[in-house]
Structures are given as C-alpha cells and as structure tokens.
Design a protein around this nucleic acid. Structure first.
Length: 275
DNA sequence: CGGCAAACCTGCGAGC
DNA sequence: TGCTCGCAGGTTTGCC
C-alpha cells in the first residue's frame, strides 16, 4: 500500500495523539507478520511512554522513553488506525493492538501481512539492518540532481526501476514513480545511466508529487486509510497511474501500460520522450 | 555487484 | 452461484 506520502500521513496523524502517552497494554493476535514478532516485544514496550514518532523511508519509528524503538512497516496492505478502546470492534487481520492511557487503542491491521513490527535501539538506529542500506530521503536537501547523477551513473536498469530502488532514494513506490516520470517527461524504460539533463526535473518532480500527495492525505486505492480511518484523496490527482487507455491530461493521446520488474508502469508515450 | 524472477499472503473483480 | 485467473501502494531472497 503505502509509499512515503501514506506513511507520512499516518505519522502526522498519530503523533499528536500518541506522543507523551504511555503504553498500558499490548495484544499480539498472532506470532508474526512478514517476520516473527521479536522476543521481548511486549516487555520492552509495556509501560513506556512514546517520546516521538519519526519516519525513515517507509518505516515508522516509535521512539520510546526507554530508548527502545518500535520499527513498523505497513507493507502493501497495512493500516494503523486509532480508536477509542471502548468503541473497538475486532476485525479480521487486526494483528496487533497497542493500548495507551486515556483509552486510546492503536490497531495494526494487515490482510496480506507484508508489513512488520520489530524492535530497535535509539542509539545507532541508522545502523539497524532494516535501515542501514537506505538512500537519502527524497524531501531532504541531500536528494538533488548532482547526487542522483552519481547514484545512477552506472545503472543499466530502467529509470523507473532505479528510482524505486530504496538504496537510490527512499519512499518512491510504484504509484509515485510513474507519476514523477510523467511530470519530468521521462520515458520509464530509458536506462537510468542515459538520463542526463532531465535529472534536475526528475528530482523536482519527485519532491513535488510526494509533497502534493502528503497534502492530500495520501492515495487510497484499496486498503490504505489514514490513522483516522479516512481515505486519502490524492488518487483523484493521478495523471497516469491506473489510467491506461484514458487520454493524457496534457496531449490527449492514450495512456499506456507496461510491466517493468513485475510492476505495472503507466506513461504517456507522446509526452515522455526525454533522454 | 547488477538484474531479474519468484516468494511471501489475502482479497477482489473479471470472465467463463 | 461458483470457479479460476490475474492483479494489487513492498521487500527479500536466490539464482544467473
């Protein structure tokens, strides 16, 4: 499900409600998601106060008062929704419940179980195996055209697959890769090393589309909802994603669909020609 | 190291 | 109504 804008929307929704709150109870309704829940997960977190909720790439990082960090990933279909404990109605795939004082309950639901919840430590968190290999944040200053030029300089794979590689830049998934390439007028099948001047436009396109999507609360296609349970609405702004056969918003020629690395890519063959 | 297919898992819509 | 197939916001693994 979630790419950076969706994860960031969840983070922004959870932070004000959970920061400063104490975990009073944790319920694990199964033993694992993509990976087993760590031994000691409950003991490490129970009774601790959430100091802050951060995000790195598509990971949510709950910094606890005891230096433990709850690292959560929503996978393809995960959601984190806050509900009043009293009003909670169990649903299929509610795998983890985290209760806070003042009767708040954080519900982690994930039908496909591609998400994960593990533990890290605040000190040296960047060295955690899940985080160590990640590239720069797309909204930071260190993600810029000169960085991207050196990062892609020897890449034979397509530009679309390259920008979805979390070692190149984090947070860009299948939707926003297509959308950013459309905005930068770059054909998705061009080998990454062949993209020269448009790299500046691509950097700007990635930043813009992610920021606009965050402003819209993310994109809801199937599973994703905000921490309030409400849908995002950036899906109504898609220029190309899921629009194969429909007219390009710029030139009216039909949007094309192809498959790259097993993932659907949408693009305008007329507008996206830049090498 | 690079690139790519397959694997992980459930649900939904399309087509027969 | 009910089956099968294909497809879905991600990441890892194993094979060339």
């Amino acid at each position: 499900m979630p790419e950076l804008p969706e994860v960031e929307t969840v983070r922004l929704g959870l932070g004000p409600h959970l920061e400063g709150r104490r975990i009073t109870q944790i319920t694990l309704n199964r033993a694992d998601l993509r990976v087993p829940f760590p031994q000691g997960l409950v003991q490490s977190l129970q009774g601790q106060v959430v100091r802050s909720i951060a995000r790195r790439a598509k990971y949510l990082l709950f910094q606890m008062s005891n230096d433990a960090v709850l690292i959560a990933h929503l996978g393809m279909s995960g959601t984190m929704v806050l509900v009043p404990q009293a009003g909670y109605v169990p649903r299929t795939h509610d795998h983890v419940l985290i209760d806070f004082n003042h009767e708040l309950r954080l519900v982690f639901n994930d039908p496909r179980r591609f998400g994960l919840i593990v533990l890290g430590e605040a000190s040296g968190l960047a060295q955690h195996p899940l985080l160590a290999h990640l590239g720069p944040e797309p909204l930071g200053d260190d993600f810029n055209a000169s960085y991207l030029k050196q990062a892609l300089g020897r890449r034979q794979s397509s530009i679309k697959q390259a920008i979805m590689d979390q070692a190149v830049v984090v947070g860009v998934g299948n939707i926003y890769a297509s959308e950013a390439l459309f905005r930068a007028k770059i054909h998705p099948q061009i080998p990454a090393l062949n993209v020269k001047n448009p790299l500046f436009a691509l950097v700007e396109a990635i930043k813009q589309v992610l920021l606009e999507a965050i402003d819209s609360g993310g994109s809801t296609l199937r599973d994703y909802v905000r921490s309030t349970g409400d849908a995002g609405y950036f899906q109504h702004q898609f220029a190309v994603y899921g629009r194969d056969g429909a007219p390009c918003i710029s030139c009216k020629s039909p949007i094309q669909r192809l498959v790259q690395g097993g993932r659907a890519t949408y693009f305008c063959n007329n507008c996206q020609k830049v090498m």
